[in-house]
Design a protein around this nucleic acid. Structure first.
Lengths: 253, 253
DNA sequence: CGCGGTTTTGAGAATCCTCAAAACCAGTGG
DNA sequence: CCACTGGTTTTGAGGATTCTCAAAACCGCG
């Protein structure tokens, strides 16, 4: 059952003018006018607990969100229950755009940790496109970015070995976390279980465990506190033949 | 070497007012004004032969294209040559948007058959966003659609068996071809080799062949004239547990 | 202490891979 | 018309990877 309808928007703890994300070097600076518009575009904040479903496949959510804090993942299910995780969502990521633009959601989103989301009204997207071509362009930019990540994931699942896949995935997530300042002291614990890794990489849980074990043995990562800590990102990237996501500053809507 | 720079735009054989695609029921009708703008947005036509590279990973193409006719595919390579096909391009599809919006192309596009492409200027995208919010929205819509297809492909590669994957892929391509009127008499030959199928599904060529053989034996498809003819789309869909891409009319830029 | 969720290990089995070679087929040039 | 060529499909066989089943260990939490 869509739990989200029973959730109310908490008060705004983070007005856009004091957005904790925007100052990060990963995001491009906005003009005052843009900020103003986004600020009005934002309808409130939504807090969801770990394990909650943020968006459900098949639904027609009236909202779209930007992640303010916390981790989540997008996934699809096969009719017999097999699950495929498509991508992860972390601070600064827009979720629910597909549904907003095309109608019905074709995937679900679940929280990996407590999340705080900026809430936008799906219906106002048209207004944004009319009044702020620059922001409209930014939204397309974000869609293109998601597409890029999916391309990479597809390459990974399709053509990399289990060990390479695993190395790629964890380096990838770690890199993204780094970009949004989640590795203050130089380290983050990625809040995923090995089941999540398995469902992302198209592997069985058992084999995933054995693969992660190998990476641990090489000192590339460590499993602790119910998550994964990357110890040697460069090592993982090398193992995966991955160059990294050469990203310039991105927009934050 | 980027062959595309040496290719000149042929004369316009298809002015937008007499676009052979637009009348198809798959596409949403455009207003006269929209048509006018798109018509000016279009800079010419480009004909490429089978096997030609339309866009190269790492390049900064000044153009983006809409497929007028013919088939192509998007792909990425791993440093050691392993290839992953990400998706197919057929009439009505926009290609090169990622590069246009974000800068450098992160994937390549190759022609599976002779193709005719409408050429647009990357630089004029901003103008389009400023002057035609509706078209801008359409472009985002198309990006979201591509994302959806990638989500499906990811689900397929990650969680379906070889037989299911293969069934899914061919039903999927067949369905898309049908939508753009490529199955006049009720049948198309999809111009791909089994190597393409293998590189799309993350399988080896040998195993792909054996899998296709099984599908042929069940009377679901037939390999002929250097391509694949789907004989029983519904059968393939059932085998793959695939519901189909419930698509309403889409924009054609 | 008991419980549910997660990680770990072992073992046999299925899927899928690589290697290798043959068959097939359309196009080319003699 | 035929031989040759390169690309594609097909088949066989052994081997590696990955899977499923099953159970134990671990761990935070009530």
């Amino acid at each position: 059952m869509p739990r989200q309808d029973s959730r109310s928007f908490s008060t705004r703890r983070y007005p856009c003018e004091r957005c904790p994300l925007r100052p990060l070097p990963a995001f491009r600076p906005f003009t005052g006018e843009e900020l103003d518009y986004v600020s009005r575009f934002k309808k409130g904040e939504l807090a969801v607990e770990r394990g909650a479903t943020v968006l459900v496949e098949g639904s027609n959510s009236a909202h779209l969100y930007t992640v303010l804090s916390g981790w989540g993942f997008r996934f699809k299910l096969l009719s017999d229950g097999r699950r495929q995780i498509l991508n992860y969502a972390m601070p600064g990521d827009l979720i629910g755009l597909q549904g907003s633009v095309m109608g019905e959601m074709q995937h679900s989103v679940e929280a990996l940790s407590p999340m705080l989301l900026c809430v936008f009204e799906r219906g106002e997207l048209h207004d944004l496109y009319r009044k702020h071509p620059g922001l409209a362009y930014d939204i397309t930019w974000l869609a293109a970015r998601e597409e890029r990540m999916l391309d990479e994931n597809l390459l990974s699942i399709g053509r990399r070995s289990a060990l390479e896949r695993c190395a790629y995935l964890l380096a990838f997530i770690r890199k993204r976390a780094e970009d949004v300042g989640l590795t203050g002291n130089g380290s983050v614990v990625i809040p995923i279980t090995q089941q999540h890794v398995a469902d992302t990489l198209g592997l069985s849980l058992v084999h995933t465990n054995k693969t992660i074990r190998k990476l641990s043995a090489r000192g590339l990562l460590r499993w602790r506190d119910g998550g994964c800590e990357v110890l040697d990102a460069a090592g993982l990237m090398a193992l995966a033949h991955w160059e990294g996501l050469g990203e310039e500053r991105r927009p934050l809507v």
